[in-house]
Amino acid sequence: MAMSTKPGSDMNDDLALLGLMQLVSPALPIGAFAWSQGLESAFELGWVKDEESLGEWLTGVLDDGLARCELPVLIRLQGAWAAADDETVGYWDDWLHANRETAELAAEDMRLGASLTRLLGSLQLLPEASMMPRDAGYVTVFAWAAHVRGVPVRQTLLGFAWSWLENQLAVACKALPLGHTAAQRLVERLRPALVEAVDMALSLKDEELGPVLPGLALASALHETQYSRLFRS
């Protein structure tokens, strides 16, 4: 039997993994379920209408969004938190805000960031007040939480991408609607893509970063005037 499977062999690794699962759980009370990141608008526009087109949309957003924006910036932010480098934390927090394409995508980032900050505060898990940027975005606070839990960076990225996928599928189950078995088929289809997105995020240089989602940006801005809607973005 391999060493790592012995009970109690690596208490810190186990606690880090559980900490990550807590952070990416849909039960984490930060209200992530209320936001669709433009997906609800893509339904309304008829751009996403079934399992197949949803799979394409998610693969595209993963490749051109998360892999070039949130995931590589998580690496930089978690590194900056580990080094107690608040200037670099502030730089990437500003960078993320400036890259949010629309009012709703900017609001989602700030609201989730504020909710996660409040939650961590009530668990006595926040850094010194001076370290956390004002109006810190979700990714910035998530990176801090991963850092205090001692989560290895690669797993932080996998966890973040996983919670994004679960949340997007929950949106589709509610609003498309998509069947729960179809959602699991999409998980199967996208699992390797999550790993590829993390690999790509780890390979990108600073000047290569930035989301490339013009269609999603248009959909998200159109969502502001969508007549009937369940989600806040």
Partner: peptide
């Protein structure tokens, strides 16, 4: 302080050139 950063690579060979999340 940056308020708006955006990049729009236009590569007709890339899936995003036709994909709805991208150039559509």
């Amino acid at each position: 302080r940056p308020l708006w950063l955006e990049r729009q690579p236009l590569d007709p060979q890339h899936p995003r050139f036709q994909g709805r999340w991208g150039q559509g």
